[in-house]
Design a protein around this nucleic acid. Structure first.
Length: 578
RNA sequence: GCAUCGAUGGUCUAGUGGUAUGACUUAGGCCUUCCAAGCCUAUAGCCCGGGUUCAAUUCCCGGUCGAUGCACCA
């Protein structure tokens, strides 16, 4: 491997820009920080990454995809906590004009609990604090909330406040009742969503890593709280091993230790089977799209680092040569936080009725007042007396109750005490939610950075993207060795055959054959087919492997099947005996 | 958001108070029987706004974007 004196980030972003993977947005007007455009190859690659994700979550796990609006009404985010909790208390230093976190300033001035103070009180409290930037005493400042959500109005006349969603997750929560019906009232079930989310970052940096508009792929898996240690398919990953960096190791500054998922759950390192299952699934998914296992680790959130809703959270972090360990996937146990919050805010119960295997017999005492007598006797008080009686503890004489501070004796003949045994057939429970949340853009960046390589081919430097065939934008290139003697016609026919099979093949007859190979190497096309003079003799072509640059002859008739199998990974190039 | 530095064809770059160098790429042609060969031709550029000046890509100011540091990053 030849190391350039330039940073991999610069090399890969230059290539991405030049070849149409990633562009600065609306460049003709000047780009805007925090937004990017995916060019033709980038959009195709991103779609393929999303489709690998769908293979895992939708097809294999059976969690159907839904699609909700990117704008939602204010109530949704009041319930989710984002209106209140997704903002920072800020102020501006009147001397140096620096924007400061007001609560941080207060902490520096030893003011207790600044985060729970009202803005006005906090403003008063920090008047005597010094600006950490210019060291002047702040004096009178205004404390305001900077909310990371983009806000807008719905309809004319600004009647309703709307927000661009800061995560796709809330869609699955607000649709909970519909989803529950769809899955025929049974736990566990899951729903997923791939889509745009928006956060008005104060200072987005680092290219594709921190965007103001980004694509998330999130799964919300609803599970019985007592069943979190019984994932139905846990066996699949029980023996799956990977390095885990627990919060305890982080506190001791120790390195990650390898565990199997079974061990991790047994030893209480990962909270439950569900979280462990998706930690392992995520590992497999990321490796499938081309992340090298040695540049992948799972890090547990520190207790004070977790979001307001999570009890346990593991981040899949991918190592970037430029940015270090980058959080790419978060797998959180959100408990019943979200469903409770939406149930409370909306007034719609978000529970599942769980039937007992055997109905529970329960003794119950019911007090049935004789209202035909009590009603006439107490008139307007009758309703309150009825309510009080049902919870009273009567004796043989009758019941003593209290209504509006007045003690009333109800004789025993005015009500009936009925002791009965009833069947309790089940209970309403609020499911817990396991949430794997993927940052698609970060995955795409990691894939690009790790694929980038410069090697030496036949004494010449070669730039090659070692993209995994399942995410490479163009799957196969087709070249005629010469643009004559009918070779080009054969090559075009082969290209069309691929297209009919849904394989993205690119025909190219421009320039020397070597140049054409290199062009495809640079955009990560894994395979190239060349039609040569032997083709006319025996109907075979050469199939060239991008990484090894080796070739093997394949019959034209077998091409779509062979390429299809190579792309989906069911065979390898080496198995063709090059 | 503050500070420092930067911005020249698609990419990388030279250079300048009088409209710009070279390479690669791309397109067309010649040649060529498997890894960026050669030859001819063509296309294409001084980030945006204001100021100073006869004249600004160049100097000054402001902005945008990018890199770095600080702050921020549920």
């Amino acid at each position: 491997m030849v190391q350039s004196c330039r940073d991999v980030f610069e090399n890969v972003m230059e290539l991405a820009k030049r070849r149409g993977f990633i562009w600065p947005t609306s460049e003709c007007y000047g780009a805007v920080a925090g937004f990017i455009d995916y060019g033709p190859l980038g959009a195709m690659m991103k779609r393929r990454v999303e489709n690998v994700w769908r293979d895992f979550y939708v097809i294999r796990e059976g969690y159907y995809e839904i699609e909700c609006p990117t704008i939602a009404q204010e109530a949704v985010f009041i319930a989710s906590g984002h209106v209140k909790g997704f903002s920072d208390k800020m102020c501006q230093c009147p001397h140096c004009k620096e924007y400061l976190r007001a609560d941080h300033v207060a902490e520096g001035g030893n003011i207790p609990n600044p985060s729970v103070m009202k803005n006005e009180d906090l403003a008063v409290a920090i008047t005597s604090c010094k600006c950490p930037a210019c060291d002047e005493v702040l004096g009178n400042v205004e404390v305001f909330n900077f909310n990371l959500m983009f806000s807008t109005t719905i309809g004319p006349g600004s009647q309703r406040t709307g927000y661009l969603r800061p995560e796709t997750a809330q869609g699955m929560f607000v649709d909970f009742s519909r989803l529950l019906r769809f899955y025929r009232d049974k736990l566990p079930f899951g729903a997923v969503q791939i889509g745009k989310s928006y956060r008005n970052e104060i200072s987005p940096r680092q290219g594709m890593i921190r965007l103001r508009e980004f694509t998330q792929a999130e799964a919300e898996i609803f599970v019985h709280p007592n069943e979190k240690n019984h994932h139905p398919s846990f066996k699949r990953y029980a023996g799956y091993r990977m390095p885990l960096l627990t919060y305890i190791q982080q506190q001791k500054c120790e390195n990650a230790v390898e565990f199997s998922m079974q061990e991790a759950v047994d030893k209480g390192i990962i909270a439950n089977e569900y979280v462990a299952y998706y930690v392992a699934l995520t590992h497999e998914l990321l490796v499938t799209i081309g992340i090298k296992p040695e540049r992948l680790r799972f890090r547990q959130h520190l207790p004070d680092e977790r979001a307001h809703y999570a009890t346990d959270c593991w981040d899949a972090e991918v190592f970037s040569q430029r940015f270090g360990w980058v959080e790419t996937v978060g797998i959180a146990d959100r408990t019943d936080y979200d469903l409770n919050a939406h149930a409370k805010q909306s007034g719609t119960p978000m529970t599942v009725f769980i039937q007992y295997e055997v109905p529970k017999k329960t003794k119950r005492r019911r007090i049935i007042p004789n209202m035909s007598v009590l009603g006439k006797q107490y008139r307007t008080k009758a309703k309150a007396i009825f309510d009080a009686l049902t919870t009273a503890t009567p004796n043989s004489e009758g019941a003593d109750i209290e209504v509006d501070g007045e003690k009333i004796h109800i004789p025993a003949n005015l009500f009936e005490v009925r002791d009965e045994v009833i069947d309790i057939r089940g209970e309403d429970i609020v499911p817990h939610v396991i949430e794997p949340s993927y940052g698609i853009d970060r995955m795409c960046y990691a894939v690009l950075e790790q694929a980038y390589d410069e090697d030496i081919a036949d004494g010449e430097a070669r730039t090659v993207m070692h993209l995994s065939p399942n995410v490479a934008p163009v799957q196969v290139a087709v070249f005629p060795l010469m643009t004559r003697d009918g070779l080009d016609t054969i090559a075009r026919t082969i290209t069309r055959t691929f297209h009919k099979k849904g394989i993205l093949a690119e025909y190219d007859d421009s320039g020397a054959i070597g140049r054409r190979y290199r062009r495809q190497d640079e955009i990560g096309t894994p395979f190239a087919i060349t039609v040569d003079y032997d083709t006319k003799e025996n109907n075979t072509v050469t199939l060239r492997d991008r990484d090894s640059m080796k070739q093997v002859r394949v019959a034209i008739a077998n091409l779509p099947e062979t390429i299809g199998a190579l792309v989906d990974g069911s065979i390898t190039f080496t198995s063709l005996n090059p």
